Simulated scan of single mutants.
Amino acid sequence: MRSRRFQQVDVFTATPYLGNPLAVVLDGSGLTPQQMQAFTDWTNLSEATFLLPPEHPQADYRVRIFCPGRELPFAGHPTLGSCHAWLGAGGRPKGGSIVQECGVGLVRIRRDDASGRLAFAAPPLRKSSPLPDAEVERIARGLGIPRADIAAHAWCDNGPNWRGILLRDAGQVLALRPDPAVLAGLDVGVIGPRGKVGVIGPRAAGDDCAFEVRAFFPGNHGMAEDPVTGSLNAALAQWLIGAGLAPERYVAAQGTALGRAGRVHVERMADGEIWIGGHSVTCISGEVQL
């Protein structure tokens, strides 16, 4: 074991402790995948990342992303949080944008100096067709809702194997009480429009967000819920904007049901590329023995 630089970053929020925390080991050199997995499981966070020297000549750094029980080829909040930590530790990009190397290949990240947000270019979907009918029925049972309440559905797989479910309003999304036994083994993302219908209180008239999002996935102890999920929001945006179910620019809220206030900024550019952005803030900085 040796001391390695470490940060714990809160992602998709400008206010500490209201987003999705990420453990970042700034020097992962020499660690085995088993050691990375063991440390990730110990943190009890949704993900941990390990920064490494790049192997691709265009990349600024390489990252390995782990969640409890498995390694991920890509994930959104670890991408933004790792980039935030890398820049904060003195990282300097080779070009105008930052290029991250990970399991899905190269991911471009840009900085907005005016807002302070980072954003990544959404990787292409691996699957994008509607879900099988039997799986939709199972998801409806697992979410405790009638099948008819599901307005639309699709594979939203950009590395993590998300299944996207669109409900009719944010109130339905926030009221969900998923059944872990029925949903066992599934990664399910649920989204519902925010606005006058289903939003309680003063936010109903002038909400800053277009959608409420929740993400459920298998954890170490049954079904878990992710506070804020960049990969899911990226895939949902590609699906919904492409299908004409969402505007080309919007903000999604996630984490409300967990007492968080995550904000995910979505924008489709003129060339059709979708960017997913948010703030990050460092909450812990120091060293870890690994």
Results as ranks from 00 to 15, higher is better:
Pro130Gly: 02
Trp155Leu: 13
Arg110Pro: 05
Ser115Asp: 02
Pro227Tyr: 10
Asn20Gln: 05
Leu125Met: 12
Asn233Met: 13
Ala243Lys: 10
Leu87Pro: 03
Ser231Val: 10
Leu106Gly: 00
Leu22Met: 00
Ile241Lys: 01
Pro53Leu: 09
Ser115Gln: 07
Ser129Leu: 14
Leu51Pro: 01
Pro123Val: 07
Arg203Ser: 12
Ser280Arg: 00
Ile274Cys: 10
Ala154Arg: 08
Pro54Cys: 02
Val99Cys: 08
His84Lys: 01
Trp155Tyr: 15
Tyr250Phe: 15
Pro218Gly: 11
Thr79Ile: 10
Arg141Tyr: 04
Gly255Thr: 05
Val63Met: 14
Gly242Ser: 00
Arg203Tyr: 12
Pro146Asn: 09
Cys102Asn: 05
Ile98Lys: 02
Ser280Lys: 02
Leu51Phe: 02
Arg168Val: 12
Ala14Val: 04
Gln254Lys: 06
Val288Trp: 06
Trp155Gln: 15
Ala234Glu: 02
Glu273Val: 13
Thr282His: 07
Phe120Glu: 01
Gln100Ser: 04
Glu55Thr: 15
Gly201Thr: 08
Val11Ala: 05
Phe50Glu: 03
Gly90Glu: 11
Ala270Asp: 15
Ile276Gly: 00
Cys67Gln: 14
Pro16His: 00
Ala243Pro: 00
Leu125Trp: 03
Gly206Cys: 11
Asn233Val: 06
Gly159Ser: 08
Ser128Cys: 14
Val136Pro: 04
Ser128Met: 13
Val188Ser: 03
Gln58Met: 09
Arg126Gly: 14
Ala75Gly: 12
Phe50Asn: 02
Cys102Ile: 01
Ala243Gln: 12
Gly88Glu: 13
Arg214Glu: 08
Pro247Leu: 04
Ala261Val: 12
Arg194Phe: 12
Glu55Pro: 02
Arg92Asn: 07
Asn158Gln: 10
Gly198Ser: 03
Pro180Gln: 14
Gly164Tyr: 03
Arg2Leu: 14
Pro93Gly: 08
Pro33Ser: 13
Leu240Ser: 01
Asp133Asn: 10
Arg92Pro: 07
Leu125His: 12
Gly278Leu: 06
Val288Arg: 07
